[in-house]
Amino acid sequence: MNKYVKYGLIGVLVLGALWAAAFFIKSNSKGAITYDTKKPFISSIEKKTVATGKVIPREEIEIKPQISGIIDKILLEEGEDVKAGDLIAVIKVVPNEQALNSAQGRVRNAEAALANLQIEYDRNKQLYDRGVISNQDFNNLKLRYDQAVVEVENSKADYRIIRLGSAGGSSSANTNIRATVNGTILEIPVEVGDQVIQSNNFNDGTTIATIADLNSMIFEGKVDEGEVGKLKIGMPLEISLGAVENQKLEAKLKFIAPKGIEEAGAVQFKIEGDVAVNDSIFIRAGYSANASLVLEKKDSILVIPEALLQFDKETDKPYVEIATGDQKFERRDIEIGISDGVNVEILSGLTEEDEVKIWNKTEPIKRGEDEEEANS
Rank of each mutant, 00 (worst) to 15 (best):
G8E: 08
L9W: 14
V14K: 03
A20H: 09
A22M: 11
A32P: 14
I33C: 00
T34S: 02
Y35P: 00
K39C: 06
S43A: 13
S44D: 15
E46P: 00
E46H: 03
K47V: 12
K48Q: 01
V50W: 01
G53R: 04
P57T: 13
P57G: 12
I61P: 08
K64S: 11
P65Q: 05
K73W: 07
L76H: 08
E77L: 13
E78N: 15
G79A: 08
L87P: 08
L87W: 10
V94G: 03
R106P: 02
V107C: 00
V107K: 00
N109H: 09
L114K: 13
L114P: 00
L117W: 02
L117C: 02
N124R: 10
K125H: 06
Q126R: 12
L127R: 09
Y128K: 12
V132R: 07
V132W: 10
S134T: 14
Q136V: 15
F138T: 03
F138E: 01
N140Q: 14
N140W: 01
Y145L: 02
A148S: 15
K156I: 07
D158L: 12
Y159P: 00
L164R: 04
G165Y: 01
G165M: 02
S166F: 05
A167K: 09
G169D: 03
N176Q: 13
N176E: 15
G183N: 05
G183F: 07
P189A: 12
V192E: 15
V192Q: 13
D194Y: 13
Q195A: 14
Q195I: 08
V196W: 03
Q198Y: 09
N200Q: 04
D204C: 06
D204M: 09
T206D: 03
T207W: 05
T210A: 08
T210H: 01
I211K: 04
L214H: 07
M217E: 02
E220S: 10
K222P: 01
E225P: 01
G229R: 05
L231Q: 03
L231T: 01
K232T: 13
M235H: 04
L237V: 07
L237Q: 03
L241A: 10
A243S: 15
V244L: 09
E245W: 06
Q247D: 07
A251L: 06
K252H: 10
L253C: 06
L253P: 07
F255N: 01
I256P: 00
P258R: 01
I261K: 07
I261L: 06
E263K: 11
A264G: 04
G265S: 04
A266I: 14
A266Q: 14
Q268R: 11
K270D: 05
K270W: 02
N278V: 12
S280H: 08
G286Y: 06
N290G: 00
A291M: 02
S292Q: 07
L295S: 00
E296G: 02
K298M: 03
P305C: 05
E306T: 08
A307E: 15
L309W: 13
L309R: 12
K313G: 10
E314F: 11
E314V: 14
K317F: 10
Y319F: 15
V320W: 03
T324Y: 08
G325F: 10
D326Q: 12
Q327K: 11
R331W: 08
S339T: 15
D340T: 05
N343W: 02
V344H: 02
I346M: 04
L347F: 01
S348M: 06
L350M: 10
E352Y: 02
N360D: 06
E363N: 00
R367I: 14
R367D: 07
R367Q: 11
D370L: 13
N375H: 09
S376P: 01
S376H: 10
